[in-house]
Nucleic acid binder design. Structure first.
Length: 350
DNA sequence: GACTCGTGGGT
DNA sequence: TACCCAAGAGT
């Protein structure tokens, strides 16, 4: 099975900037493997491609990343989502630079001690960058294994079983290529919907296909429904065009990123939203409603706007020590998450 | 084990 | 439209 899959991978595998082509002389750079793996966590290859190049160009070595201010890293990450990844990436770079002389640990166990590196990423780096006999299991590999073995146990209950199956198939000589081959198979052939079984190199081995279940596996536990949260945001604009923004607390949702100041987001609107305004002004509801969907809730943000004088005093309710005026031309490169870019786009016109 | 934590694209 | 889903980690 592994041999057939590897032969397919050598022939049909994707060419990606962080990947060394099978058979090449070059040896993988653990820094690049790590960076790509963290960026790819729950994120599509398409979304990562342009960001990976920018990131690497700005911070070519782990020491460069370690020396950067966190705010710069968050700004570069803006729009990619799951911002704890960027915070952990930065923390991890500092640990590697300062405590490991700039060299990543080569074992799965050593890697897993680092911030932002969990089961999957530790096994991925160990196998891909260091040729260690580790078996990463991502969503693709879960799907491929569930189908290959016609596994009817639903996820996430099936995870230990799947890990054992994948480990039993991993060839000792090419663990990293095998993992990447499974991931490419999952991304290109063994897709979640309408898998291209006719093109699959391991079709004869697939018990799921034999049982007519390839398309419906893996089974999954039902997920909770998403509630809706409401809030009111205050877009203050100075005569020179600068916008009032605020840094969010360092952890939690959008931690460390910039936001348009707002009321807390709750199941109901604040009774007196204006009590949360960052300053006294003629707030008007001209912008309207901005809607955004996060992983586990929908947000409906009512946006007020006001022209603000140069000498306006920030109110204590807005926590002025976290506030700053940002020039219009600096917005593009600021640490603004997508939901806040949506607010600005709608509020500043376009 | 169950939550929290983003975003954009595909169906 | 309303889901589903993507090279998951931390608590």
């Amino acid at each position: 099975m592994a041999a057939k899959l590897l032969a397919w991978y050598d022939r049909e595998g994707r060419t990606l900037p962080w990947r060394i082509r099978p058979g090449a002389e070059e040896t993988p750079d653990p820094y690049k493997v790590w960076l790509s793996e963290v960026m790819l966590q729950q994120t599509t290859v398409k979304a990562v491609l342009p960001r990976y190049g920018r990131f690497l160009g700005r911070w070519p070595r782990v020491e460069d990343l370690a020396a950067a201010p966190l705010g710069d890293v968050l700004a570069e990450w803006a729009g990619l989502g799951y911002y704890a990844r960027a915070r952990n990436l930065h923390a991890c770079a500092r640990v590697v630079a300062e405590e490991h002389c700039g060299e990543f640990p080569s074992t799965e166990a050593g890697l897993k001690k680092l911030p932002g590196i969990g089961d999957y990423t530790a096994a991925a780096i160990a196998s891909i960058a260091f040729n260690e006999p580790a078996t990463p299991v991502d969503g693709n590999i879960e799907r491929v294994m569930a189908r290959l073995f016609a596994l009817k146990t639903p996820l996430p209950e099936a995870k230990p079983e799947i890990k054992a199956m994948a480990a039993s198939l991993t060839p000792p000589d090419r663990p990293g290529d095998f993992a990447q081959a499974l991931m490419d198979l999952g991304a290109q052939i063994c897709t979640p919907k309408r898998p291209a079984c006719g093109l699959c190199p391991i079709r004869p081995d697939c018990e799921g296909l034999a049982e007519g279940l390839a398309e419906v596996l893996p089974y999954k536990a039902e997920k909770a429904e998403r509630p809706t949260r409401l809030g009111t945001a205050f877009l203050g604009v100075r005569a020179d065009g600068a916008v009032l923004l605020r840094e969010r607390p360092p952890k939690g949702l959008l931690g460390g990123m910039l936001e348009v100041p707002s009321t807390p987001w709750g199941p109901k609107d604040a009774a007196e939203p204006l009590a949360f305004a960052p300053l006294e002004a003629d707030w008007r509801m001209t912008v309207g409603l901005v809607e955004h969907t996060f992983t586990h809730f929908h947000l409906k943000l009512q946006v007020y706007a006001a022209a603000v004088p140069e000498d306006a005093t920030l109110s204590e309710a807005a926590e002025p020590e976290r506030c700053r005026w940002v020039a219009r031309r600096d917005l593009a490169s600021a640490a603004l998450p997508s939901v806040m870019r949506k607010v600005l786009r709608q509020g500043l016109g376009e």
